[in-house]
Design a protein around this nucleic acid. Structure first.
Lengths: 250, 250
DNA sequence: AGATTCATGTCGCTA
DNA sequence: TAGCGACGTGAATCT
């Protein structure tokens, strides 16, 4: 039996299941009317309402309402959660240090508590990341510009690590900043920061900077132009051929 | 009855409950062995495994494993999710446009399906945000420096909106960038961007920039110094008095 | 543990 | 709708 469920349990029965499940490393969900108090990097208070609470065996706790992707409250992995009954009500407390953070969920009503055994796993395979864009450019540096020769990735500078560092056709240092999607002003600032740091390393060598991304906003384009930086359009994965024959839709 | 639960249901029975719950605007959880395919801003494939799937009435869908705060796969609010049975297996598909994204969850085994009615709500009250820091400084501008006079918040510039714009004791323009927590290099770049934009607006008036945050990293401190920018330490909420008497622990 | 950056970031606001 | 920046960002990587 991989799922144990209590329907409208007493708070004490719920506590018993929670303690058992926490001990077994099972994942738990609770649904009911509760309040939530959080104190740590910030501080928050959530009045009574119907929520889905998820406790994971790695110490994660999530409090979900019926909207939004983000939990209304949570605690990250590595926390220790403990359940107790105070004044006849179930309470789940999750704590951690560095930084010190505490989350308290107090239930007024409990509709359902379930414990799940998770045994089967598979890893996620994802494509379309900045890493894919980097690989694409290392495979074909001409995508950046004719004659570009990559020399290093994640090269350290006084301002932080440069995505791709290399030389242009004339042998001048070239700083390439990659973004997997359309970028705003912060990307231009980031590139500028790296270029200035590299420029300090190679004075009078005419260090250049190129931002590689699918596209840029107008303001970002202006910021790049002002600072003498370039933009080259490229995507993490080659676009589907727009010219005829691209009939792979289902 | 605010919760309906099916234990080890047939895929057709699960489908019936899902369609009913989607129609009623109820929140749904499913637990079982499934695979997940995603295609949109990126692309991913997740092999078979035991997961908790949450469907919210606002169109959010979450696929959680037994670890991490982040779902392994998801779809944001505003998506339309549809359930069906193909080859005797339950499938939940969630789609949206702008950008075009599709998520497919296919179940091999179904341990439990639950539908929850969410009626009771309360809003979250949170303190310790950048907004709190701003209010603190507007209440007492001397926290930035003696003689500082705020003139505007979110003031627009060619490089974006400045958190607090004002004048120093000598009447020179002052750009203040706020951060609720310890900052890295990007904050220095951001401030510099704003200062340069304001400097272009007020040539030869000696525009100054001050970063206000709890603390900065060493490298960020150097970047600020290089560019003639300042740092002032301040937190969103006044720190507890470290000197004696702070005995509120439980 | 701290620093740095990417992310299918998410979310809210505003022009 | 797109642009822009905050977020209790989270998560990975490297020192």
């Amino acid at each position: 039996m991989t799922v144990t469920t209590l329907h409208r349990p007493t708070h004490r029965d719920a506590l018993a299941l929670l303690e058992e499940a926490f001990g077994d490393g099972r994942m738990v969900t609770m649904f009911g009317r509760c309040t939530v108090e959080y104190d740590g990097r910030a501080e928050s208070s959530l009045g009574p309402g119907d929520r889905l609470v998820v406790c994971k065996p790695d110490g994660t706790i999530l409090v979900h309402t019926d909207s939004q992707r983000k939990p209304v409250n949570w605690q990250p992995p590595g926390c220790t959660h403990r359940a107790s009954v105070r004044d006849g009500r179930l309470r789940v407390r999750s704590e951690r240090s560095t930084p010190t953070e505490r989350l308290d969920v107090r239930f007024e009503r409990l509709e359902q508590v379930s414990a799940y055994e998770v045994t089967d796993r598979s890893d996620l395979r994802l494509t379309g990341s900045e890493e894919d864009l980097r690989q694409r450019i290392l495979d074909d540096p001409a995508l950046v510009e004719e004659g570009f020769v990559p020399r290093a990735t994640e090269r350290e500078t006084a301002a932080g690590p440069v995505d791709i560092f290399g030389e242009d056709a004339e042998g001048r240092p070239l700083v390439v900043e990659l973004k997997r999607r359309r970028v705003g002003p912060s990307a231009a600032s980031q590139l500028r920061r790296y270029v200035e740091a590299v420029d300090a390393e190679f004075p009078d060598e005419g260090v250049r900077g190129i931002l590689v991304a699918p596209s840029v906003t107008d303001r970002t384009r202006e910021l790049l132009d002002e600072k003498g930086l370039s933009f080259v359009a490229a995507e993490p994965v080659a676009e589907a051929d727009e010219e005829e024959g691209g009939d792979e839709a289902t």
